[in-house]
Each structure stands twice: as structure tokens, then as C-alpha cells.
Design a binder for these strands. Structure first.
Length: 680
RNA sequence: GCUUCCAUAGCUCAAUGGAUAGAGCAACGCCCUUCUAAGGCGAAGAUGAAGGUUCGAUUCCUUCUGGGAGCACCA
């Protein structure tokens, strides 16, 4: 009678098939309405056996071993299973009662997740928000999977870009402060960074004009204009064609001749080369800029520890970090470990010298120490990486070598994740490869969690062109939009806090619903909506489950005790001793949607296993939406506690479904690091 | 030029080598006397091109086309 506790229906089915046939198949959720699960019988075929005999043989063996509550059938090449609601409900109950969904936990692992990694010269933008969403969610997921998680942040608080803000402040700041102006610290400093860029443009404008007039440059610019002139009608024609195809709902067809295509290719190639002419001129002009010279001088003074420079640097960094703190607090992010580049930028020299002594690195004629990436087997083709400049100073890679080592040694990590944009894929490949070449066996514990760029409809965000989506502004806009929508729906009393949570949920869910490695487009007007597959939709369904449970609790419990202590679905409180809670009769659940909801509930464990394997947040994002959607469907078709319409026994069974849904929605949202609200 | 990521519906995105390729938005038609309509239901709509591997390919391999990112003394 006693059955082992089961958390995974597919596991159970796979085991049954394995016992019956000796082969463990890949069990899938059925794609046809008549079945719940199934597998393709080709997986059982050995040699040239006829598939029909494989199926009939397997089916016969399987049906002899099937536990109660499971039936087997076949369609095409698939062997299918149907599971009873009672069995599904029991599994769902097991999963919901276990804090980790019943997945097998690995040995306790210590895992660091480094994310955010801001520069202290401007406020956080949309790219940082994707980073925060991913980093926070990865940390939550690892913790859920049994890791002891350390969240870490590495702040890039030194360098030329910081000096630019500092210089602009010296020139234009007039001793104003975030307090005196009422501007948030990071925005305050960011404004001076922009001021610097503007001043620089102004300063070098005449130089650029002069350089452009030089015969060689002038010729190139003229050629460029000619090429663009030739290319423009071609591109316009292409666009018009695409538009026409769109209207006609045809797939775009390429009508250009091979000659035209070759010509376009040539034009584009030449343009690409010439396209750099403007950048080259600009770089040339910068060499004559007094502002740029002052920045370099300031950086040297900073490195020399000049008290005045350091004091200014500390003051301005303090403002920025204060601003970041506010944003992080709002995003509910807390770091256990903080690294500052200013403290570590000089580290790593010993590691490099050690490698040089061992002949792993080389010294090139200028005196710089380099790693030959091809020779070290890090990449197939030619490639080198400087580790120490010819003047002996360290670079980015040098300090990353040191910090990687320090992380491992100080914290004894079993895993070390870097949540860093895909632009740095090459950097991490080189970093990990170099560490491996140096013989650190822990290098396999380092993982770069790369993610793609967030683009605006008009293309890449550019701070100079003012097309940056600022995190603070975005969150404010979302919060206000949520309040406006709530008011429209008659909820005038929504708190700012709840509105903020709902707004953040919208942003986070949008960012987490796209596979990390792929780039994504973000349209501020349309992307973060509140209807359909969105964070607010999921929260809304969560609120609905909570509301039902609350009302059920009030019906059953004496008022005032309707919280934790009184399980929904418990019997009427009387003077008698508490009755043992009877398992509701799940066989009363006859609606197809109830069966679907149960299947979706037990899918939680399967999803978590997949997440454990792939560390892919998208799986959770997709799952939690599907669960919310299935629940919403159930909600509209199956009254739970409308007493006059629903018999009490049925109500009890449905209430359990609501309870499990509530729990698993909450757990899934926790994994995405999305906060919940109780009212909407 | 080299490396790398990507290409799926009008748009934004899904799919551990398996069944009829799923959602949302937009557009169309229904549903509030019912636990909150930020909701539900219905119909319409897609794998960039050509080969290969496989019983089976959106998925793996090759080539091509188109786009993003990166390419040693910035971080």
C-alpha cells in the first residue's frame, strides 16, 4: 500500500518502461489531447526490428508493470500514458510541500555570482538592468538548488573615464553637490561626464574641420559621400520591396541580380573601410585636445596618490556609489562581497611574472609581457594578449587573473559565475585559457554567463546621443503607469510600494523571458506592457490564488486566525479535537482544464531539473507563465468556493489545486527574483 | 580580413533530435447578474537559401545570404 514519495511523473514512467524493456526512454509531455505523456518507440528499436512489433511488444510488457492510476495507449510511433487526477494531485502535493520541489540536491556547494559591475561615471542603464535581472535570478536559482551563494560586485571606480567626470566637475561644477541640486548622486556625476564629452566635441571641432580639409582626408570623405550616394537608392528600393512584401504578406524575395549583389557588397566593404575615416580624424584631433591631456595628467596624479585628486575622486565616487545603493535597494539587490578596481588594479603582476619565468608567457621587444593565445591553444588563429604593458603596469586581464585567484582562495568556491555581457566573450575565453595554462586546476569552476545586448528600436544605446534608457527613470515611469492603470480599474488606493513591485515585475519578466545569449530589442513604449505574457499578468494570477485561499480560510477559520495557522481546506473548527485532514477526493475533478492544471503543476520538478542542468532562466520564465495561464483558464471555468454552485467536496479538491498553484507560482517567481504583491 | 553569436507568424520572443513548430502584441469575432475583465474563448498567420547525417532536423554538420558583437599596452 505504501508507495515511495514521487516528485517526478516522467521519472516514474521512464522507470516503468526501463523495467519492462531494459531501455530508459525520453518521456515527453504529450502533444495530442488524448494523452498526457509519451515517447517515440524508435528509441527502443534495436537493429532493423519492425517498429510495429517493437511497439506491440513494449506495450504488452509495460502494461503488466503499470502502477494504479496510469494507463497506456499507442498512436503512430508513440507509446502514450494517461495519469489519473488522484495520482497527479498526490505528486503535485509532494512537490508543493517540499521547499525544493523534490529534486535531488548535490552536495553543498559554495558558489559566487558576480554581477552588476558598474562604472562610477554614469548611472545604470537598461543593459545593467538586464544584468541585474539575470544575476539576481541566477543567485536565487542557485540558492534554490542548494548552493551556498555569495553575491559579488566589482565596481570599476578608476580610470580615464572617471577622470573625465572629475575634470568636468572641476571646470564647471562650482562646488555644487547632489544635495545642493537635489539630483541623485550617480545622475549628478553622469551629467558631468556628458558635460565633458560636449566640451571635448566643442574643443576639437575646429581641429576636425582642419583635418577634414587636408587633401588626403578630403579625398576620402568625398569618395565616401559618392559611395553613399550610389548605395542610397539601392537600399531604399530594398526597403520599399520589403514593405510591399509585408503588405502582401509574402516572404521577402530577393529580386536583385548577382551583378547587383556583388556591386552592393563591394560598395559596403569600401564604405566600411572609409567609415572609419571619421573616427580616425576624431582620434587624431583628440591628440591636440587640452582636455584629453588634462585627463591623462589627472590619471597619472591619481595613480601617484596626489591628495587633492584623490579627495575629489573619493567625494565623487561617494556620490555615485550612494546613488547606486538606492537603485540596488530598489531592485532588492544585496552584495555579500564588494570588489573595487581601485583596490585591485595593481594586482596580478606576480602571477604574470611567475608565468613568464615558467616560459608560459613571453616578453615582446617593447618590453611588454604577452600571452600568445594561439600557442597556448586558447584559439586556433593568431592572437595575443598583453598582460603587462611595456612600462610594467597592469591591464584589465592582469587584475582579472588576480581576482579570480583571490575569489577561489578566500572563499573556497566550488563555482564562480561571471554575469557579464557577451561583448566580453573573448576576454573570458582568454582569461580562463590563461589560468588553465598556468596550471590552476580550479579554472573549470569558473563560468562566464554571457548575455546579449539590449537594443532600442533605433539601434544601440548611445549616451552621447541621449538614447540611453536610464534604470531609475524607467522604474519610475513603470510605477506611475501601474498606478494610472490601477486607478483606471477603480483601485485608487494602490500603494507606491506595490505599484513599484508590479512595474519591476514587468521589466524583469520581459528581460528574463528572452534567452540570455540572444540580443533583444526593447521598445520603451511597447515592450513593458501589462497584458498578456507579462510579469503583471503572472502577479495577477498569483493574487487571484491568494484571494481564493484567503476567502476559503475565512469561511473555515474563526476570524483573525485566517493566516498561517489555519490550513485552507481544514475541517470546521469545533470543540472536538482537530480532525485528521481527509485527502480531498480528486476523482471529482472531471473538467479537462483541471487535469491540465495538475499536469502543469507536476511539471515544476521537470523544469527545475532542466534548469539545474542548463542554468537557463528562460525555462522558469516560460513555465511560470504557462502555469499562470493554465490557472487563469481554470479560474474562469471552475468556481472554487462559490458555495451555491460548487458542492463542498468538489470545492475541497479544487481548493487544493489553488493552494498548489499558489505555492508553485510563488516559488517560480522567487527563482526569477520577482517580488509578489497581495492585491492588484 | 579573422573570431563569435544570431536568423522562426506583420512585430517581440519560445520549442532537452520526435507527434499537428508554441505564446504575447497588433488586426478580426465573441464573453462581466458568477471567487478582481491587468481576465477567458474562437478564427487567421512562420522555420533566410541550398546541400548532408538520421527511421525522424527549427535543433547536429557544410556552404551561401543577411544582422549584432569582438579582434593585444581601454575597462
Amino acid at each position: 500500500m505504501e508507495q515511495p514519495i514521487s516528485y517526478s511523473t516522467t521519472d516514474l514512467l521512464a522507470s516503468v518502461v526501463e523495467n519492462a524493456t531494459g531501455m530508459r526512454p525520453n518521456i515527453l509531455r504529450a502533444n495530442i489531447p488524448e494523452a498526457d505523456y509519451g515517447f517515440n518507440a524508435f528509441q527502443l528499436r534495436e537493429g532493423n526490428q519492425h517498429i510495429d512489433s517493437v511497439i506491440s511488444d513494449a506495450r504488452a510488457r509495460i502494461s503488466r508493470l503499470l502502477p494504479q492510476g496510469i494507463t497506456v495507449s499507442t498512436t503512430g510511433n508513440f507509446i502514450n500514458f494517461n495519469i489519473s487526477n488522484a495520482m497527479l494531485a498526490q505528486t503535485a502535493g509532494n512537490i508543493a510541500e517540499k521547499p525544493n520541489g523534490g529534486i535531488e540536491m548535490p552536495d553543498q556547494q559554495k558558489t559566487m555570482v558576480e554581477y552588476f559591475s558598474p562604472n562610477t561615471n554614469k548611472p545604470a542603464h537598461l543593459g545593467h538592468l538586464r544584468n541585474l535581472a539575470l544575476g539576481k535570478s541566477l543567485s536565487a536559482t542557485l540558492a534554490f538548488l542548494g548552493h551556498d551563494v555569495l553575491e559579488a560586485n566589482l565596481t570599476n571606480d578608476r580610470g580615464a573615464h572617471i577622470c573625465k567626470s572629475m575634470l568636468a566637475y572641476q571646470l564647471f561644477g562650482e562646488d555644487s553637490t547632489p544635495e545642493s541640486t537635489g539630483i541623485k548622486g550617480d545622475h549628478f556625476v553622469g551629467d558631468y561626464y556628458v558635460r565633458y564629452e560636449k566640451a571635448l566635441q566643442q574643443e576639437i571641432a575646429p581641429v576636425i574641420a582642419r583635418l577634414r580639409a587636408e587633401p588626403e582626408n578630403a579625398a576620402k570623405l568625398k569618395r565616401k559621400a559618392e559611395l553613399e550616394e550610389e548605395l542610397r537608392p539601392i537600399i531604399e528600393k530594398e526597403k520599399a520591396q520589403q514593405e510591399a512584401d509585408k503588405v502582401a504578406k509574402k516572404t521577402a524575395k530577393d529580386t536583385r541580380t548577382p551583378e547587383e549583389k556583388a556591386r552592393i557588397k563591394d560598395l559596403k566593404k569600401e564604405l566600411e573601410k572609409l567609415g572609419k575615416i571619421n573616427d580616425e580624424i576624431k582620434d587624431e584631433a583628440k591628440k591636440e585636445s587640452s582636455l584629453e591631456k588634462q585627463v591623462s595628467a589627472m590619471l597619472i596624479k591619481w595613480e601617484a596618490g596626489d591628495p587633492e585628486t584623490r579627495a575629489l575622486w573619493e567625494k565623487m565616487n561617494g556620490w555615485v556609489l550612494g546613488g547606486f545603493q538606492e537603485t540596488l535597494k530598489r531592485m532588492n539587490v544585496h552584495f555579500d562581497v564588494e570588489y573595487f578596481e581601485s583596490e585591485i588594479y595593481n594586482m596580478g603582476r606576480d602571477i604574470v611574472m611567475d608565468g613568464l619565468a615558467k616560459g608560459i608567457f613571453e616578453r615582446d621587444p617593447s618590453g611588454a609581457v604577452i600571452a600568445d593565445l594561439q600557442k597556448l591553444g586558447i584559439q586556433k588563429n593568431e592572437g595575443k594578449k598583453v598582460l603587462l604593458r611595456s612600462d610594467g603596469t597592469t591591464v584589465y586581464t592582469t587584475q582579472d587573473l588576480a581576482i579570480a585567484k583571490r575569489k577561489m582562495e578566500e572563499h573556497g568556491l566550488d563555482n564562480s559565475f561571471y554575469v557579464v555581457a557577451g561583448e566580453q566573450d573573448d576576454h573570458f575565453r582568454a582569461l580562463f585559457g590563461i589560468l588553465k595554462a598556468l596550471g590552476y586546476e580550479w579554472v573549470d569552476k569558473l563560468k562566464h554567463m554571457s548575455y546579449g545586448m539590449v537594443e532600442l528600436p533605433e539601434g544601440r544605446m548611445k549616451s552621447r546621443e541621449g538614447t540611453v534608457v536610464d534604470v531609475d527613470d524607467l522604474l519610475n515611469e513603470l510605477r506611475d503607469k501601474v498606478k494610472a492603470i490601477a486607478a483606471e480599474k477603480g483601485n485608487e488606493t494602490m500603494s507606491d510600494e506595490d505599484a513599484d513591485k508590479i512595474g519591476k515585475a514587468a521589466a524583469q519578466y520581459y528581460l528574463l523571458s528572452v534567452r540570455p545569449e540572444s540580443g533583444m530589442k526593447f521598445d520603451p513604449e511597447e515592450s513593458v506592457s501589462f497584458e498578456g505574457k507579462t510579469g503583471p499578468y503572472i502577479l495577477y494570477q498569483y493574487v487571484r490564488t491568494g484571494k481564493i485561499l484567503e476567502q476559503a480560510g475565512q469561511q473555515i477559520c474563526p476570524s483573525g486566525t485566517a493566516q498561517q495557522g489555519c490550513p485552507s481546506g481544514a475541517g470546521q473548527q469545533t470543540s472536538e479535537a482537530p480532525q485528521p485532514q481527509d485527502e480531498p477526493n480528486f476523482n471529482l475533478l472531471q473538467e479537462p482544464i483541471e487535469h491540465e492544471l495538475l499536469l502543469k503543476l507536476v511539471e515544476f520538478t521537470e523544469k527545475m531539473r532542466a534548469v539545474q542542468k542548463t542554468m537557463d532562466q528562460t525555462l522558469i520564465a516560460t513555465y511560470v507563465y504557462e502555469l499562470a495561464q493554465t490557472f487563469s483558464n481554470f479560474y474562469s471555468k471552475c468556481p472554487v468556493i462559490k458555495g451555491d454552485k460548487t458542492p463542498p467536496e468538489l470545492s475541497q479538491a479544487r481548493l487544493k489545486l489553488v493552494e498548489y498553484t499558489h505555492t508553485l507560482l510563488k516559488q517560480s517567481l522567487d527563482l526569477l527574483a520577482i517580488e509578489t504583491v497581495e492585491k492588484m
